[in-house]
């Protein structure tokens, strides 16, 4: 059987909110090392990769590898019934066709069980090679969210450029153009307000703002976001999940034909 007890249940709620509009159905791959998920959006240009390590759970048991086929909208409906401070336990039998979500209030005076039907999903797994990216930028996640939202009101695509000075976001549309530059900034009080640029070579790539906007639904998971870019490769937008792992989004660049 599989069982995972997560003291900070709100993390799971936040993960679902971040991915449920991008991916419809996906397998949660459970093994003794944790829970992993990889899924593409329906147009196959964006990919979600989630890792929740067993060590981040208060209690974790997985007797044999399980692929739990889950409709994310339905799981989100169930998790919305959990309080933000609740402890969430996931349970599934080896041969079962359901998953149980147990919610415990912080002072243990309310225990709820929700059982959700599982589904059979043929997943398309992509092999993502380890890459030395040409540029890696870490910046405040709220700032990235703000920039992407602001640019979305002006254009459909953004050019993201990285030089050793910083990262720039540009767009254009019927009403005009916009260009935002965030400079490397390591002299701020709080580490989470820093913008750091690690660069081997300047890089500039074009992406659909609609997807970048969707990725920023993960902002609540982490105060910082890391953007990894290489010429003619998908961008990686990574939110680290404290003590547990990460939520990564990959987005294919727009390339001139």
């Amino acid at each position: 059987m599989f069982e995972g007890r997560l003291l900070q249940g709100s993390l799971l709620k936040k993960v679902l909110e971040a991915i449920k509009d991008l991916v419809t159905d996906t397998n949660f791959d459970c093994s003794e090392t944790g829970i992993a998920l990889q899924a593409m959006d329906s147009s196959h240009v964006a990919l979600v990769s989630l890792l929740l390590k067993d060590t981040g759970f208060d209690h974790f048991r997985c007797d044999r590898n399980l692929a739990l086929g889950i409709n994310l909208q339905n799981m989100s409906k169930m998790l919305k019934c959990a309080g933000n401070d609740d402890i969430i336990t996931l349970k599934a039998e080896d041969e079962g066709d359901t998953i149980t979500f147990m919610f415990e209030s912080p002072n243990q005076d309310k225990i709820s069980d929700f059982e959700m039907k599982l589904m059979d999903i043929d997943s398309e797994h992509l092999g993502i090679p380890d890459t030395d990216y040409q540029a890696i930028v870490t910046m405040p996640s709220a700032e990235f969210q703000r920039i992407v939202r602001d640019l979305s009101s002006i254009g459909d695509t953004a050019v993201i450029g990285v030089t050793k000075e910083g990262i720039s976001f540009s767009t254009g549309g019927d009403i005009g153009k916009a260009n935002i530059v965030c400079r490397q900034n390591t002299n701020v009080d709080k580490e989470e307000d820093q913008t750091t640029v690690e660069i081997h070579e300047p890089v500039s790539l074009t992406f659909a703002l609609r997807y970048l906007n969707s990725f920023t639904k993960a902002t609540a998971l982490s105060p910082q976001v890391t953007l990894s870019l290489s010429k003619e490769l998908p961008i990686v937008v990574e939110y680290k999940i404290e003590k547990m792992g990460f939520l990564r989004f990959y987005l294919a660049p727009k390339i001139e034909e």
Binding site: M40, S43, H125, L126, E232, Y250, A252, K254, E256
Partner: peptide, 14 residues
């Protein structure tokens, strides 16, 4: 025109 390429172009399907 710029085209949105699919991920298959960059990563191989397992």
């Amino acid at each position: 025109p710029a085209r949105q390429n699919r991920l298959f172009k960059f990563f191989c399907l397992h």
